[in-house]
């Protein structure tokens, strides 16, 4: 019995065909690193390593989304970037464009940078790529994002010293760097960094205690 059946072989009729499918499309091991997955995709040929493609997309999705949030500062734009980058990564891996699969992070970084530029210019071929690879993106789109208990965060912020609370709010309300927050509060950038670091550590500890039920 074949465990993994590409669509075009809906009912393998003999053992030889099953064997061929296993060789071309072996099960993905969770402990495989990104480079191994990339190598598997590159070597298998177009569409022959769907599980490896899905697993790589699942891993890369949250990282690329964060890259998008960092550089585009917009959740919808970050989601667009994530989709676009994953589609292009799979396409380029299938086409054998990554020679050294150990450099997959660098490869994805290059695609991210290029896609951010394209997104800012307002033109990419998203629909065309989606049509071809939408299936591979399904697990990536379902990847959960970290969440926090809002009441817990508010309660923990109220326990912080006033200055730490003010610095954290004025920093993270709009993700402002230390020099800008310092200018708002009459503090040096260095002082803001110290207060910010201390406040974040306390906040994290308090929120963490709530999550562990203590």
């Amino acid at each position: 019995m074949c465990n993994e059946t590409p669509r075009r072989y809906t009912s393998p009729s003999n053992a030889a065909e099953c064997y061929l499918l296993r060789v071309e499309n072996p099960p993905v091991e969770q402990f495989e690193d990104d480079a191994a997955l990339a190598q598997r995709i590159a070597q298998a040929g177009p569409g022959r390593a769907r599980k490896a493609e899905a697993e790589l997309c699942r891993r890369l999705a949250p990282r690329v989304r964060l890259y998008g949030l960092k550089h585009l500062r917009d959740a919808h734009a970050a989601a667009d970037l994530m989709q676009q980058v994953l589609l292009m990564t799979i396409e380029k891996l299938r086409a054998g464009e990554l020679r050294d699969t150990a450099r997959v992070a660098s490869f994805v970084f290059g695609i991210c940078r290029m896609t951010v530029l394209e997104l800012r210019r307002g033109g990419f071929r998203r629909e065309q790529l989606l049509e071809r690879y939408a299936e591979d993106l399904a697990p990536a789109a379902a990847a959960p994002e970290p969440t926090v208990d809002l009441d817990r965060v508010a309660g923990c912020l109220e326990k912080l010293p006033q200055r730490e609370r003010s610095v954290l709010l004025m920093t993270f309300y709009e993700d402002r760097p230390a020099d800008e927050v310092g200018a708002l509060l009459g503090l040096s950038a260095g002082n803001v960094r110290v207060i910010r670091h201390r406040g974040l550590a306390r906040l994290r500890e308090c929120v963490g205690q709530g999550e562990s039920g203590t």
Binding site: V148, L150, L157, S166
Partner: peptide, 19 residues
């Protein structure tokens, strides 16, 4: 990033006394 979002949302909901 999730924690930063929590700070932002707590303030937007008026759940913070802050200077």
């Amino acid at each position: 990033v999730a924690l930063a979002g929590g700070i932002r949302d707590a303030f937007r909901q008026g759940a913070l006394q802050v200077f």
